[in-house]
Simulated assay, not measured.
Amino acid sequence: MPGFPFERRSPSFDLAELIGRKTEDARQRCERDGFQVQVFDLDRHPAVTLEYNPNRIRLTTRRGVVEDCRQG
C-alpha cells in the first residue's frame, strides 16, 4: 500500500507456539524478534484499539497465560 508507514513482515516463528505460554515468556519472544507487544489481560476487562500496526503482536491472556495472539 503506497504511503503506508509499515511493511508487513512475518515473525520468525509460528504465533501458535505462544498459546499456553506464560505472558512474560511470550512477550520476550516477540520482542527478541523485533515486534512491539500489546497485552490484553482478560481478567482485567481490557479495551482494544482498532488501529493496525503490522510491527505489533497482540497477546490475549488470562491468569498469566497466553490464550490468543495476532499480528497487527
Rank of each mutant, 00 (worst) to 15 (best):
N55I: 00
Q71E: 01
P11Y: 01
R58I: 11
D25Q: 10
F6Q: 14
N55T: 08
V65T: 15
L59F: 10
V66A: 02
D68L: 11
E31A: 14
T61C: 15
R56D: 05
V66K: 07
R62E: 04
C30A: 13
G34R: 09
L50Y: 14
A26N: 01
V65M: 09
N53R: 14
G3R: 12
R44N: 10
T49W: 06
L42P: 15
R8V: 06
E24F: 15
E51L: 07
G64C: 06
F6G: 05
R27K: 12
G34F: 13
R29G: 02
R9I: 10
Q28T: 13
I57K: 01
S12D: 13
L59W: 13
F40G: 01
V37K: 04
E51H: 15
Q36P: 00
K22I: 06
S12R: 15
A16Q: 08
P54W: 07
R70T: 08
F40M: 12
A26V: 05
N55A: 09
R44I: 03
Q71V: 01
E7V: 10
P5H: 07
R32C: 11
R21T: 08
R9D: 00
G34N: 09
G20Y: 05
P54A: 08
E67T: 11
L50I: 14
R63Q: 14
N55C: 08
D68Q: 06
R27I: 12
R32V: 04
R70N: 05
N55F: 00
R29N: 06
P2G: 09
F13W: 03
L59T: 05
F35G: 02
G34L: 08
R44W: 04
N53E: 14
L59M: 10
Q36C: 00
V37Q: 01
D43Q: 10
F13E: 05
P2M: 13
R32I: 04
R58G: 10
E7A: 07
E24D: 14
V48Q: 07
L42M: 15
R63M: 06
C69Y: 03
I19F: 00
G20L: 04
